[in-house]
Simulated assay, not measured.
Amino acid sequence: MTVNLLDFDLEGLAVFCDGLGEKRFRAVQLFRWIHQKGASQFDDMSDLAKSLREKLKGIACIQAMPVVSQHMSADGTIKWLFDVGDGNAVEAVFIPEADRGTLCVSSQAGCAVGCRFCSTGHQGFSRNLTTGEIVAQLWFAEHFLRKHLKRDERVISNVVMMGMGEPLQNYNALVPALRVMLDDHAYGLSRRRVTVSTSGIVPMIDRLAQDCPVALAVSLHAPNDALRDTLVPLNLKYPLAQLVAACHRYLAHAPRDFITFEYCMLDGVNDSDACARQLVARIQAHPGAWCKFNLIPFNPFPASGLLRSKPDRVQAFAKILNDAGVITTIRKTRGDDIDAACGQLAGDVKDRTRVMVRMERNRNLHAPLLAASGNQAEEVSA
């Protein structure tokens, strides 16, 4: 059985190479070829000893996930659907902006948290992704985009763990993947530009602060426990007081001096002036400008029974927070024409995956995506 080298951070790869009788500098060379240059064939790694290349061919590979489909939005957002086997799929989304390129990455196939407003949660949970499957989303997207955009320099400047799944429920695979993203011999991303989003698993927030502190975003969505219990079931285990205290502890280790609170605006549910004032009171109970709010327009799907807050209501809600000194922004929707906006990922992935994977195996549709240098979005429909 071959080993997928995408599963290793640099330390793991050094241990692997040591087991082959190779020195650490060989692991560094190999790591750079894989992540900086996007090499997937050992014969392309010209500065590796031929003996090592031959040795690696028999025991290792650099294996990305098959691409089931690629969709490009009118605003430049690109969404990829990756086959992870057994009828499951995950999605990653690239969001281009003038000053950055952000990749939204999945950590699980499905999600077990079951937030009421999230279509992924309604799909249910299938399994955790491996480190290699998390890293493969960045590996594929970065090197595809360089070819597609005809650029030699790095395209992806920010990674947000805000795709399918709850990252902190897949902690053992998440942390090595984060280390690959941050490593100067790989993608060299700043800790400030890698964000883990969590629905609030308090013990794992504390562990992340010690093991690999990056920017932290917390899916809050309610100002009190009674409401949050109905929207984010995890609140029953880790109520708001515990969650806010964990956020404060995290600040001592975080690369930024604030925590981002995500707040999905739901018409008539959590968007009243009273809710805004409750949030202000909860935030001001802890002195200082220690957090920011990101108000997210809800992207409706039939099973939720929820509606998007009206624009003037969102503006009024934001004004209450801003007037109280709580920095608040309203997220622009991106990619909603291809179901790539927040909360929309994988609303019907399972049905599409079964059909698409069968078509892909018959027609080998993903190969052009891996090799193309500027081809237009491949769209596959059942």
Score class of each variant (00 low, 15 high):
residue 323 D to Q: 12
residue 295 L to G: 06
residue 251 L to C: 12
residue 283 I to D: 03
residue 143 H to N: 12
residue 1 M to H: 04
residue 161 M to K: 07
residue 71 H to I: 00
residue 102 T to L: 11
residue 284 Q to C: 05
residue 301 F to V: 11
residue 310 K to I: 00
residue 382 A to H: 15
residue 233 P to C: 06
residue 357 V to M: 08
residue 134 I to S: 02
residue 102 T to M: 12
residue 198 T to N: 13
residue 72 M to F: 06
residue 219 S to Y: 01
residue 252 A to S: 15
residue 46 S to P: 01
residue 369 L to R: 14
residue 73 S to F: 14
residue 255 P to R: 15
residue 308 R to I: 00
residue 56 L to M: 13
residue 382 A to V: 07
residue 227 L to Y: 07
residue 319 K to A: 14
residue 22 E to I: 00
residue 132 G to D: 10
residue 121 G to A: 13
residue 327 I to V: 15
residue 302 P to D: 11
residue 212 C to A: 13
residue 79 K to Q: 11
residue 379 E to S: 08
residue 134 I to L: 09
residue 42 F to G: 01
residue 150 K to R: 14
residue 136 A to L: 12
residue 346 A to L: 06
residue 219 S to I: 00
residue 149 L to S: 06
residue 83 D to S: 09
residue 344 Q to F: 12
residue 39 A to R: 13
residue 199 S to P: 05
residue 109 A to N: 04
residue 303 A to W: 08
residue 233 P to T: 02
residue 201 I to L: 15
residue 66 P to K: 07
residue 308 R to S: 14
residue 220 L to V: 01
residue 200 G to S: 10
residue 270 N to T: 08
residue 316 A to D: 00
residue 370 L to N: 02
residue 76 G to Q: 13
residue 153 E to D: 13
residue 205 I to E: 14
residue 149 L to M: 13
residue 53 R to W: 12
residue 134 I to D: 02
residue 205 I to S: 13
residue 183 D to I: 00
residue 51 S to Y: 09
residue 4 N to C: 13
residue 317 F to K: 03
residue 192 R to H: 12
residue 266 L to T: 02
residue 316 A to E: 00
residue 220 L to A: 06
residue 227 L to H: 08
residue 300 P to C: 09
residue 199 S to W: 11
residue 188 G to E: 03
residue 147 K to C: 07
residue 164 M to G: 03
residue 116 R to V: 08
residue 43 D to V: 08
residue 88 N to D: 14
residue 212 C to P: 04
residue 212 C to D: 11
residue 161 M to A: 09
residue 377 A to D: 12
residue 197 S to P: 04
residue 308 R to T: 03
residue 24 R to M: 05
residue 359 M to C: 04
residue 160 V to F: 10
residue 200 G to I: 05
residue 71 H to W: 10
residue 376 Q to K: 11
residue 65 M to K: 05
residue 340 A to M: 10
residue 133 E to T: 12
residue 322 N to M: 12
residue 181 M to I: 09
residue 104 C to Q: 06
residue 59 I to T: 12
residue 303 A to D: 12
residue 14 A to F: 03
residue 291 C to A: 10
residue 96 P to T: 03
residue 107 S to C: 15
residue 71 H to F: 06
residue 331 R to T: 03
residue 375 N to Y: 11
residue 302 P to L: 03
residue 26 R to L: 04
residue 223 P to D: 02
residue 177 A to C: 10
residue 371 A to R: 14
residue 8 F to K: 11
residue 269 V to K: 08
residue 192 R to E: 11
residue 376 Q to F: 07
residue 257 D to C: 07
residue 96 P to I: 05
residue 53 R to Y: 11
residue 362 N to Y: 02
residue 147 K to G: 15
residue 340 A to S: 02
residue 44 D to R: 13
residue 84 V to P: 01
residue 302 P to H: 03
residue 340 A to D: 10
residue 37 K to D: 10
residue 373 S to I: 00
residue 330 I to A: 15
residue 244 V to G: 04
